[in-house]
Design a protein around this nucleic acid. Structure first.
Lengths: 203, 203, 203, 203
DNA sequence: TATGAATGAGCATTCATTCAT
DNA sequence: AATGAATGAATGCTCATTCAT
């Protein structure tokens, strides 16, 4: 029993270190984007040895993908929680838009957005493509789940749910692109979200 | 006078060479995006000497910015032509959407789109920011000019023209992002453009 | 007594593990030569821990030397057996040549030959030199023992036995070098062995 | 004409630098063999910049192959000269053996032999194989040319010339292998060359 | 004006060896 | 006795920029 416990502890210790690397690396990506980040940056931030990091990850790419995976599952998890609690659709939807607005206007510089785009546009291998498409699929799914909540609460028609979800996704991507160039105002975000709100086919 | 003529000829020769560099460089950017392009690539394509290119441009960045400037004035010019000829709004608008659809689905790989994004997301200096914002302003202006043509032909209401222009711009940016990851279908583009068309406040 | 038995058993266990390491390592050397082999390779093949292997051997060099020592004693043992049984010289000699031919033409890639050469030519320390010379001495002794068998059976003159032994050794080394570059044909081996056979001073 | 002369001078200057690199690199290979040599070693010896060397050669391999190519053509050239001057066969042959003996006994440590073997046994790609076989073919051709000179001077039978050439080649390779382990005496070389001399089928 | 040879800082990655547990 | 996580020195290679001619 001691033996088993010791072994578990070792595995846990390793997993903890892995998590620690990911958290430190995430800060680096937020600060510098993706392309400027070298293994040396992550090593410095993590306080680990040059060779040590390769015991956990094969490359900067691999670290970044892991950071993204952990991040994007959160959002969908949250929405699923709301669905389970049958939170009123308007509350869920407004909170979602509010979060996006906040992200677009205030947290761009310390978010992973720049890093994500730098990664996307420089990785064209089939594997990378698939990963990127999965990430977008997750965003679409998040929005669709929200809209279906509205339908199940008889607040929305169930017409054109998919094109609508996609439109919101495309719109948010477009806004994100603009926000990174620094050319996005609060008024613009409000106007766009208002237009979208009008479009939602309320019963 | 001979002296002045000779000087003019030299200036012309210099301008021709500058243009030649830009045309060759453009092909390189279309092929390789922005980040992968080295001075060596441009030198090879241009058939100029390594030192020589620095007589015309200080860096790859400068060359790329110049390529973009020359490109983007075209689109607005075309729309302005249509306005002068008072071409029916529906024709102009449909052609615009058709061009965008074609670009998104067929010409992504040999367009400058990837290069543009790679450039945008890796350049945060005030100068670059301003340039990027000018580029987006030009796109918005193009769309707005089109919509105003519809108003002047009494085909459209003149309400919310700016938010609508911006929405189309954001949507196209979002679609562009997705198209670069290879995850964009013709059906999706058609659906999004149909949704936008419904929104245009026809009289 | 219990204590002594336990100690013996431990020594045996240790010796078994040592042998196991050598057998596994030998396969690695056959597959990869010498220079490409890292401790990690041997660890993987041996299913032992990284630190554990250092309890038995100080380095890859030491492991390889031990593998070689065990291998080369075999050949001489076989010839000595034949001498004891007074097997006819022609049979012994022809079998020896046949074995060498087979090794040169068919088993180069899964033999230790490449590894041996890679080791020899990269180790110039006095210790290594001495080891290498012992190895060659053993080969020469093997051949010489064979020829002396022929003399004792009154099949051969006892003139120039040492230069002849050495010539066969040098020739085989030369053939081995060529075989590793892939440039050795069966015809060449046959011709060389035929020439040598003509030279053997039969009574 | 001035223009052409200037251009020639540039090409010559570049060729001179290339030669200078090869000469310096050769010394490094003689001193350290092949495997221990890093680009840094060659850079230090050549007094060139880190990047500069890559303007002339892509890798250590490429430098080494070039060094070998320049070396091995010499030997065949010399023999061809002797053939043209119809130098007596015995003189040519004895001088050849004397040179080999000298090389084997005295100049091993500052010759390229160790480097050559280190290179051969660690390069198994088809391209490398072909190169190695060409090198051996050149050695065989050198010896064969010599023997044919003897035939043309009616000093030798023309029987078995190819197997004989090959035997001398194999023997010299075998002697070379032993010489690198430090286990080769003058007596051994003399004995082997004497045995070979007996074998040459003099008329 | 134009050339292109030369520079050297910067980065990813491997691996033998150690040592706390 | 055995483990395996951690270390960090070492190396090949690229590329923007300079400068002598």
């Amino acid at each position: 029993m001691n033996f088993l416990m010791a072994k578990l502890t070792n595995q846990q210790r390793k997993e903890n270190k892995r998590q620690s690397i990911l958290e430190n690396a995430k800060r680096v990506f937020q600060r510098k984007g993706f392309l400027d980040v070298t293994m040396a940056d992550i090593i410095t931030e993590t306080q680990i040895s040059r060779g040590g990091i390769y015991l956990y990850f094969k490359s900067v790419d691999e670290i970044f993908i892991e950071v993204l995976k952990q991040r994007n599952s959160h959002s969908l998890d949250n929405i699923n929680d709301e669905v389970e609690h049958n939170t009123p659709f308007e509350d869920v939807f407004n909170e979602y838009l509010q979060n996006q607005k906040d992200r677009l206007l205030n947290h761009i510089e310390d978010s992973l957005l720049r890093a994500v785009y730098e990664f996307y546009f420089t990785h064209k291998s089939p594997t990378s493509r698939q990963f990127q498409q999965e990430q977008f699929a997750m965003i679409k799914q998040t929005i669709l789940t929200m809209l279906k909540l509205g339908v199940s609460q008889s607040k929305l028609d169930d017409q054109q749910l998919i094109p609508l979800s996609e439109q919101l996704m495309f719109l948010i991507e477009g806004l994100s692109v603009l926000s990174l160039t620094g050319g996005l105002t609060e008024q613009q975000v409000d106007q766009q979200f208002a237009l979208i709100n009008q479009r939602i086919p309320r019963v």
